[in-house]
Simulated assay, not measured.
Amino acid sequence: MLNKIMMSGRLLTEPAVTTKDDLRYCKFSIAVDQPKQKGIDAVETDTFTCLAFDDNANAVSFLYSKGGTITFVGSLRNAPDNTAVIIVEELHFQNRFAVKVDVNSEQIF
């Protein structure tokens, strides 16, 4: 069975890393435009909940902010409340993107 999904959308929430029982994760929501239909000017959007773990969580929190565009590959999973959650497995960068820089961290990307 294959469970892969590629998404590109705008972040609806500010990503932040949370640590619980030695598990680092970043939970965020994205809005993805549906394909534009012929003769209809309005574009509908779908909202998805996403989870990134460990290094991916740190990268999402460091490189992206609310309103920015994110592109990633992941897998679709069921949450305990029977909603769909996308698990981020790979981050993909476009040629142009804005980077949040923390000058106190001395971390260079």
Rank of each mutant, 00 (worst) to 15 (best):
1 M>H: 05
1 M>V: 06
1 M>L: 02
2 L>V: 15
3 N>I: 11
3 N>L: 11
3 N>D: 06
4 K>F: 14
5 I>F: 09
5 I>V: 15
5 I>N: 08
6 M>E: 13
7 M>Q: 10
8 S>Q: 14
8 S>D: 06
8 S>E: 13
9 G>D: 00
9 G>T: 07
10 R>Q: 08
10 R>S: 02
11 L>T: 07
11 L>G: 03
12 L>P: 02
12 L>T: 00
13 T>K: 10
13 T>M: 01
14 E>K: 08
15 P>I: 02
17 V>N: 04
18 T>N: 01
20 K>I: 09
21 D>R: 11
22 D>T: 12
22 D>G: 01
22 D>P: 01
24 R>F: 08
26 C>M: 06
26 C>L: 02
26 C>I: 07
27 K>P: 03
28 F>N: 05
29 S>N: 13
30 I>P: 02
30 I>C: 08
31 A>Q: 05
31 A>Y: 07
33 D>T: 04
34 Q>G: 11
34 Q>E: 14
34 Q>K: 15
35 P>E: 00
35 P>D: 04
38 K>G: 04
38 K>R: 12
39 G>S: 06
39 G>N: 01
39 G>Y: 04
39 G>A: 07
40 I>A: 13
40 I>N: 09
41 D>G: 10
41 D>F: 05
43 V>I: 13
43 V>N: 03
44 E>P: 02
45 T>W: 02
45 T>S: 15
45 T>L: 05
46 D>L: 15
46 D>M: 14
46 D>V: 15
46 D>W: 11
48 F>Y: 15
48 F>N: 04
50 C>P: 07
51 L>N: 01
52 A>G: 03
53 F>C: 05
55 D>G: 00
57 A>E: 00
58 N>W: 02
59 A>E: 00
60 V>E: 03
60 V>P: 07
60 V>Q: 10
61 S>W: 08
63 L>D: 00
64 Y>F: 15
65 S>K: 10
65 S>M: 02
65 S>C: 03
65 S>W: 00
66 K>S: 04
67 G>C: 01
68 G>P: 03
68 G>L: 01
68 G>T: 08
69 T>Q: 14
69 T>K: 10
70 I>T: 00
73 V>G: 11
74 G>Y: 10
76 L>I: 15
77 R>F: 01
77 R>P: 09
78 N>V: 02
78 N>C: 12
80 P>V: 05
80 P>H: 01
80 P>N: 13
82 N>S: 15
82 N>T: 07
85 V>S: 07
86 I>K: 09
86 I>G: 05
88 V>L: 09
89 E>T: 07
91 L>H: 03
91 L>D: 03
92 H>N: 14
93 F>W: 11
94 Q>L: 15
94 Q>I: 12
95 N>T: 12
96 R>V: 15
96 R>C: 12
96 R>S: 14
96 R>G: 14
96 R>A: 15
96 R>H: 14
98 A>E: 04
98 A>S: 13
100 K>E: 09
101 V>F: 03
101 V>M: 06
102 D>V: 00
102 D>N: 13
103 V>W: 00
105 S>Q: 05
105 S>R: 08
106 E>D: 06
107 Q>H: 02
108 I>G: 09
108 I>R: 05
108 I>E: 04
